[in-house]
Amino acid sequence: MIVHTLRFAFKEDITEEEREHVLALMRRTASVESVSFGTVGQSLGEKDRFTHAYCVGIADMDALRRYMHDPVHLAGDPQILPYLSRIAIGPDLSDDMTPTLATDILALHEEKLTLYPEWAAQIGPLLADR
């Protein structure tokens, strides 16, 4: 199982209705076929930087690839990202002890950045610590 996490903060000027809409879009993404379990809600740490978190459990690398390219996921990000001020990807974790797993996951992420340059341009400025 690969457990993928995001921590994020909303822009200060969005409405409560917009915030709830974004969280609903994230919950929709967290419920696609390739996801074994998911949750979206408040972040319980680093309240000064990240107010919310997203976590999904994904069975294996094949499921991760499907998740990353799922039409629901691809359609949701452009509707979600404009409302966020920052994102931290990870830390992810896994019970799969394959020594190259972290590198393999990073390669999938890099592949997605290359395949979807508009997504890369949208998410890049939001990444924390860049």
Rank of each mutant, 00 (worst) to 15 (best):
I2C: 06
R7E: 04
D13G: 04
T15A: 01
E16L: 11
E16Y: 00
E16R: 11
R19E: 14
H21G: 07
V22M: 01
L23Y: 09
M26G: 01
M26F: 02
R27H: 13
A30D: 03
A30P: 02
E33N: 05
F37E: 04
G38M: 07
V40L: 02
Q42W: 04
Q42C: 04
E46V: 03
K47R: 01
Y54T: 07
I58S: 00
A59I: 11
D60F: 10
D60R: 15
M61S: 13
R66D: 03
H69E: 09
H73Y: 15
A75G: 01
G76T: 01
G76P: 00
I80V: 15
I80G: 03
P82L: 02
A88N: 08
P91M: 14
L93Y: 14
D96C: 10
D96N: 15
A102E: 14
D104H: 04
D104A: 03
D104P: 02
I105C: 13
L106P: 00
A107M: 09
L108P: 05
E110T: 13
E111A: 15
K112M: 14
L113Q: 10
T114H: 15
Q122R: 00
Q122F: 01
I123N: 06
P125N: 11
L126S: 05
A128S: 01
A128H: 04
R130L: 12
